[in-house]
Design a protein around this nucleic acid. Structure first.
Lengths: 349, 349
DNA sequence: CTGAAAGCGCTTACAG
DNA sequence: CTGAAAGCGCTTACAG
């Protein structure tokens, strides 16, 4: 490790704006202008100041800047997402976008059912004077939270399966596309008796994914029998229950699509408890493509959402104004779910 | 939502220390003393000031305090942990302890193999003037990182499977206990030919868990045959490979202990690829008790570490000085891993 | 036990 | 295009 004395301005403490101003022989206000990329600095002045900044290794103190700006350099991620993989991937994506911006990520889990939800978020946002907030489902779908954020004048970006807000404040995940792919996959494998296990209705994704699935199935001439349309709760246990419900039908489905992977594994568990062999006796397709999808037996065919990209895109929208980009005009690719085909769904005999 | 006008000091902006001082008819320095729990305030003065603080809903601005203190109110979690479940649970535990303290959690993933690791951490800690840092393995085991933190005078707490530091800077996870439990479990089930799949040697946990396992096995009079002692890499793929290596032995083991769950699932996959039926033909025990342990078939017997508690305990050690507690004397329960017995390990025939 | 002054490191008006 | 003054909301010396 060569973290030696070669770093500039090492003499004890960090360089401040005053040091830069003195050495560059300008006022600190001019240094401030350079830091903040104000256009009102002559090019040669700017160059001189920048050279001193580099030489001294000057980095503006975010706390001092924040105090003067009345706004911190912290981005909050507020989430009630229960899936660790989802949360960590999204954090990673946000950090990808934040890298080099001087902003940091502060995590803030919450519970939508908590009576103190709004109070809690208010305290967090207000006290930290957050630069902005990013929210995945389902808290991103809570209009009371959004109203609060507006009241607090806190920029935000919502990630959700449908456009709930203006484009600059939204990353739309198009879940329906993934569900439609799953439907076509099962139909094309020759399945006709197909079950659907929905998720919690609190999550918009449940309705969106269901509709995408049912519509695509209908397109293939395979209408979904209402008896095969079961309400789950996005949990493993609800998947077990739904699996038993479907498989105990007089004419059980030959394939089941669940709106997330946890429920898919639950359905597989139910099938085994009934003595079925997988995938021979039942095809299963999930949604999320959790790491375990590739680790269970048989490997689970599942719909993957680019969570990390979604986090990055959300953060980029939040940063756009700071970068002088009009967030509404920020060109971002559409979020496209993709079906990852493995071995849990096979042709219908 | 009743976030109405009942909140005090709502007239546009937040109350500041000046407002409190004026209303309480004291100097702002005295208000500052009350905020910082200085003993040098008369009780009645303190009560009066506190009443005004409550009445006005005054919350000190962390940025202003941080600027004056030359230290922020941000706790950094620096990690290179690849397991999302581990990361999220630990974050949750840290947040449990931080609740009400006014501190926030800033997440900072890193890579120990990155050539810019130290530079990166230096920038993060120095720029944010972090209140403190919490590190799980394996970055917690990196002495170069620790040296840097000391140089920067940044308090830290390390979480690791062995005591690498003074008690006030350590949460020791006693992984060996969990591995020993796994060993006794398998021995008591009558297994004699037992395989061990180790993890990356970069992680101290690999050696610690292995030793705990081997020692406890020996205690039961079941010495580990070196041929059954395989080097893995904590990945699913390395588990598959190790599984094949062990199961292709002339006398294959009847049970295998892997140092994490990902490798346990890999071993199970290998067993199936060889036509074995589980758990009939092979018992498997993992370590971590990931959510998927309870969702795979057969359900995986695994060692659970109280990750969330570990995060909370680490944060409590970091907060102890602020709370006037001597961190060395902070009474914390020992971290005790526990074997969660499910259906992947059964009696040896 | 309490307070007036100076300062933490920046930025916002306001001039010029 | 550039700068001197005042201020963001706190705390640290230093007095008393």
């Amino acid at each position: 490790m060569s973290d030696d004395d070669s770093r500039p301005a090492k003499s004890g403490k960090r360089a401040t704006i005053n040091d830069v101003a003195r050495v560059a022989e300008v006022s600190k206000k001019t240094v401030s202008r350079v830091i903040n990329q104000s256009p009102f600095v002559r090019q040669d002045t700017r160059d001189r100041v920048q050279a001193v900044i580099d030489e001294l290794g000057f980095i503006p103190d975010p706390q001092a800047r924040g105090l003067a700006f009345r706004r911190s350099f912290l981005v909050g991620m507020i989430y009630d997402q229960p899936s660790p993989t989802y949360v960590v991937n999204m954090q990673q994506g946000i950090l990808d976008a934040l890298k080099g911006s001087g902003l940091e990520l502060v995590v803030h889990p919450c519970s939508r059912t908590s009576p103190t939800l709004l109070e809690d978020i208010r305290g967090f946002v207000e006290r930290q004077r957050l630069f902005g907030v990013i929210m995945p489902p389902s808290v991103s779908e809570d209009e009371a939270v959004i109203a609060l954020l507006r009241e607090l004048d806190c920029p935000y970006v919502r990630i959700a399966s449908v456009a709930l807000d203006e484009p600059q404040a939204m990353v739309v995940t198009n879940d329906w596309m993934g569900a439609a792919e799953a439907a076509r996959h099962l139909a094309d494998l020759g399945h006709r008796r197909i079950g659907l296990v929905r998720g919690l209705t609190l999550f918009r994704s449940s309705a969106v994914r269901s509709k995408g699935f049912i519509d695509a199935l209908a397109d293939r001439g395979v209408p979904l029998d209402p008896a095969y349309d079961i309400q789950g709760a996005y949990t493993f246990e609800s998947g077990v229950e739904a699996g038993h419900a479907l498989l105990s039908l007089p004419e059980p489905p030959t394939a089941i699509f669940t709106l997330n992977d946890d429920m898919a594994l639950g359905v597989m568990q139910a099938a085994r408890e009934r003595g079925l062999e997988l995938p021979r006796d039942l095809s299963v397709v999930g949604f999320d493509d959790l790491p375990m999808a590739a680790r269970v037996w048989p490997n689970l065919t599942s719909v993957r959402l680019p969570i990390r990209d979604m986090g990055r895109m959300a953060a980029e929208k939040l940063l756009a104004p700071m970068r002088g980009v009009d967030p509404a005009k920020l060109v971002q690719p559409e979020v496209r779910p993709a079906l990852v085909v493995r071995h849990s769904a096979i042709p219908n005999r």
